[in-house]
Amino acid sequence: MPKLIRWRGDRAEAVEDPFTSIDDDQVIPQGDVIISLRRFQSEGAFLLGQCRQVGVRLAADETPEALDADLARIAVVALVFPKFRDGRAFSAASILRDRLGYQGEVRAVGDVLLEQAKFMVRCGFDSFEPADGATPGQWTAAAHRFRHVYQRAADGLEPVFVERATGHETPG
């Protein structure tokens, strides 16, 4: 099974990926699978009835709101970065976590690069298939490169305006 980076607590670690990602023209094998939204809409109910874990892959132009009713039963939402510059998945992840309250795994797939680690972790991604071969150690370091954050995000870190109000720092 291919390796995957999982974010656990405050660090990244390498894990075996129990899921197989299936293209639309592939036959669905045994075990846990990640399938496209289209396939999920036609075969999802059937697969979920088979005592296996099912994940859904959302293309950059597909919205997580489309999954709303089924989210509780979906183990993984894999969000695709067709190019690293295409940042739609950052919004999708934020909406999954903050608005739809999704608790399952949110996975970054596609053109996933180390330089985006901190943004991804902040937006609520918790598993990664780096395209540049980044290691969990590098991933952890990149995600922690900044000691403070200016905004609230899905990672729940205290933004600076809260830090300031609680008096950890001297006001400027």
Binding site: G87, K118, C123, A153
Partner: peptide, 9 residues
């Protein structure tokens, strides 16, 4: 600054 959602518009 370093907005996690809006750095790849």
């Amino acid at each position: 600054t370093f907005h996690p959602e809006f750095s790849f518009l």
